[in-house]
């Protein structure tokens, strides 16, 4: 690991950098508060240690200080709440998902991920649909819409490099989306304890250029049709 003190995985989705930047904003705010409080604590411990002949100040508090730190904390959390809302809805609220792009069905079951592709016609439930196990092939630069289902227990669809996580719950169909900004191979993991094989419920995300992806879909559809003909 290059930077063991900040081991963020590579960031390869469109909303990933916005999430990371909010992470660093919070890191700055909490970092400053942390240093302030701990320095003050240590300073007081040293300065006000018991010494011969000195008596503690007899004070029961200070209303003005109470008002100041209450208001200041409130202002900070208000700002944080405000700064977080738009990004949260951009990632999670289906009404705000971008239009168009690739649609996939992902079904989780103990202990594997099944990804269904609509094939060349772009529609599910037709003959050219095909399925991949523990492999999520997607094109770069295109929104990918996923409908998540689970067959048995709750699993959690986790793409660390895309800063995306969404539980898959039996009996529910949960929409999620992301868009890759880079080609390459990335991690798909399960983040919710799902049984004794939870630790190996792992898949790969393979991001290709849009042309390569089209070729790949064609190939897969042909394989599928050939299989069907046999």
């Amino acid at each position: 690991m290059e930077r063991w003190w900040m081991p963020l995985p590579e960031d390869v989705s469109t909303f990933g950098p916005r999430i990371d930047s909010l992470f660093f904003t919070i890191l700055w705010i909490t970092g400053i508060v942390f240093v302030l409080v701990e320095v003050l604590l240590v300073y007081y411990i040293v300065k006000y240690r018991a010494r011969e002949g000195r008596r503690a100040i007899f004070s029961h508090g200070n209303t003005r200080l109470e008002i100041i730190w209450t208001t200041a904390t409130f202002a900070i959390v208000f700002f944080l709440g405000l700064a977080s809302q738009p990004l949260w809805y951009a990632v999670k609220e289906p009404a705000r998902f971008p239009r168009g792009g690739l649609e996939l069905n992902v079904t989780a079951k103990q202990f594997e991920w099944h990804v269904t592709y609509p094939g060349l016609d772009g529609r599910f439930g037709t003959a050219d649909d095909f399925e991949k196990r523990n492999e999520l092939d997607i094109p770069v630069g295109v929104p990918v819409h996923i409908t998540l289902r689970a067959e048995d227990v709750i699993h959690s669809f986790f793409l660390p490099q895309f800063r995306l996580k969404q539980d898959a719950v039996p009996g529910m169909e949960i929409p999620a989306w992301f868009q890759a900004t880079k080609t390459g191979e990335f991690v798909l993991g399960c983040a919710e304890l799902c049984g004794l094989g939870h630790y190996r419920m792992r898949g790969r995300v393979i991001v290709q250029s849009q042309e390569d992806f089209q070729r790949w879909v064609q190939q897969q559809t042909q394989v599928r049709t050939a299989d069907a003909a046999r």
């Binding site: 916005r18 919070i26 705010i29 909490t30 709440g81 949260w88 990632v91 996580k165 919710e192």
Partner: peptide, 14 residues
Amino acid sequence: MFVAATPVDIPLHD
């Protein structure tokens, strides 16, 4: 605070 802020919770949750 990190995990309370929902967008940052997405990668950090669980």
